[in-house]
């Protein structure tokens, strides 16, 4: 998964580069069109149009039967049974293309979420930047030897353009070190998290255009990479569970309605698929 994401990240960055200054709805519409076409193409490639059509006609026949013989209970029951059976068959015929769609679209959607689902910090914004350690860190990581409860030997290296507005708060119960961080100027930054002798980096995006921003850099695991592909995993033995900050969420304008982009993609790709199924000769 890490390798796939490593390839997908620059690919999507490049793909979305021309759209970075346009309203998010423009990219969302273009991708919906692409998703509609790909979905139709997958259906065409992997389903049997004759069988799909037959199942659809059987369902329609059942509905007609109910309308014509609506005073005959026996016929109605039989028709309902037939409808359910053929509806299941219809769904079955489209199961393979559906499974393929999930496989193809999920990594794409996960990538896009970090372009359209969040926005970068604005210059002047102030956010909490935090490092959460894995359980049992005490036995694996160096402590700083200071007074009070033991705390990791952990410090931030903050580039120009960002600054720390507070000393860290160490919460032993949360295994978390948190700072208030101020975004001073626009830019794509890398904050160094120095833990003992090792330094890990975390990206911080201060921008008002549409760029990939990554709220969390997580410990290595398949699901983490599947759902948070915006940044590479932390090395396996880092002792860190996550490094994160909160970006503002972004809503997409859709005919006067402000909503999450994925809802718009869902609606628009269905609309595009319905429009294009005729010209593309696909039966759904």
């Amino acid at each position: 998964m890490s390798a796939i994401n490593a390839a997908l990240r620059p690919f999507f960055d490049l793909l979305l580069y021309p759209l970075r200054e346009a309203p998010a709805i423009v990219g969302v519409t273009l991708f919906s069109l692409l998703f509609g076409i790909v979905a139709l193409w997958l259906v065409k490639l992997t389903s049997n149009p004759a069988k799909v059509d037959a199942a659809k006609r059987k369902v329609a026949a059942g509905l007609l039967e109910i309308r014509l013989f609506n005073d005959n209970l026996r016929i109605i029951f039989r028709a309902v049974g037939s409808i359910l059976r053929h509806q299941a068959a219809y769904t079955g015929h489209l199961l393979v293309p559906l499974a393929l769609m999930i496989l193809v679209f999920l990594p794409m959607l996960a990538q896009l979420e970090f372009h359209w689902g969040r926005q970068g910090l604005a210059a002047g914004d102030s956010v909490v930047f935090k490092v959460v350690l894995e359980e049992g860190w005490e036995s694996r990581l160096p402590t700083d030897g200071g007074e009070g409860t033991p705390r990791p030997d952990l410090a931030l290296e903050v580039p120009d353009g960002l600054s720390l507005a507070s000393p860290p708060v160490w919460s032993p119960a949360e295994r978390e070190m948190a700072w208030q961080m101020q975004a001073d100027a626009e830019g794509a930054y890398e904050v160094g998290v120095r833990l003992g002798d090792t330094t890990h980096v975390k990206t911080v995006g201060v921008t008002d255009s549409i760029r990939r921003v990554s709220p969390e850099r997580l410990a290595a695991s398949f699901t983490n990479q599947l759902l948070y592909p915006a940044e590479p995993s932390l090395p396996r033995d880092s002792g860190i569970e996550k490094i994160g900050l909160t970006y503002p969420t972004r809503d997409v304008w859709f005919f006067g309605w402000h909503t999450h982009w994925i809802i718009v993609v869902l609606i628009l790709s269905i609309v595009f698929a319905l429009i294009l199924r005729g010209p593309m000769g696909v039966t759904i």
């Binding site: 909490v128 935090k130 200071g146 007074e147 009070g148 409860t149 507005a165 507070s166 000393p167 860290p168 708060v169 160490w170 919460s171 119960a173 949360e174 978390e176 948190a178 700072w179 208030q180 909160t246």
Partner: peptide
């Protein structure tokens, strides 16, 4: 409020909002 045991600083958590303040 998560209070640091060395510096006069704490992290406030209200709902989804977090804020470190001196």
């Amino acid at each position: 409020l998560y209070v640091d045991d060395r510096e006069d600083v704490a992290k406030l958590v209200v709902g989804d909002t977090e804020r470190v303040l001196r």
